[in-house]
């Protein structure tokens, strides 16, 4: 089964920066790992921590939260909240000894197609190294 393991990674991307950045990466014909599945939101501030938790518990091997750089939010301050939410999820996961490595936050602007390709590849490689999320086999969740 694990002869060629491709992880499943969910990415929550804000439409103004990161999604546009991802688009630019595509238009620029940069290689994006096939493991990434993107969900577009209006703002990274829309990423309910429960989206991330649910994706994790439902068996995603990795979850990415992406938005505009701090200070550049289309809605002024959405991503500042995102940052706190990421830290919250991270801290709770850490306290519970859950795998924090699988949750990832990155700021990618509309012009950073190269960064998008780079961070997604890096994260995807890391997740491939970690192997499948153990929740995939857990029945008593």
């Amino acid at each position: 089964m694990e002869k060629e393991y491709t992880p499943q990674i969910i990415g929550f991307l804000c439409t103004w920066c990161s999604y546009t950045g991802a688009d630019l990466a595509g238009v620029s014909r940069l290689q994006i790992p096939p493991s990434i599945r993107v969900i577009r939101l209006m703002c990274s501030g829309r990423i309910d921590p429960l989206f991330v938790t649910k994706a994790f518990i439902s068996g995603s091997d990795g979850v990415m939260m992406m938005g505009c750089h701090p200070g550049d939010c289309h809605y002024q301050k959405g991503n500042y909240y995102t940052r706190r939410r990421y830290k919250t999820i991270n801290s709770v996961f850490e306290s519970l000894h859950l795998d924090t490595e699988r949750i990832f936050l990155s700021w990618v602007s509309a012009s950073e197609g190269v960064k998008y390709a780079h961070v997604t590849k890096e994260f995807s490689d890391k997740i491939t190294g970690l192997g499948p999320n153990p929740v995939k086999k857990e029945i008593f969740l």
Binding site: K54, I57, V92, K136, I139, L141
Partner: peptide
């Protein structure tokens, strides 16, 4: 299909983790 079995109702760990994220601070 994926696991050969599933706890019913689902979401026990999700509930507690999610509640922690909501209110533990």
């Amino acid at each position: 299909n994926q696991k050969g079995g599933a706890r019913v109702p689902s979401g026990t760990i999700f509930f507690h983790t999610g509640r922690m994220i909501h209110m533990a601070v």
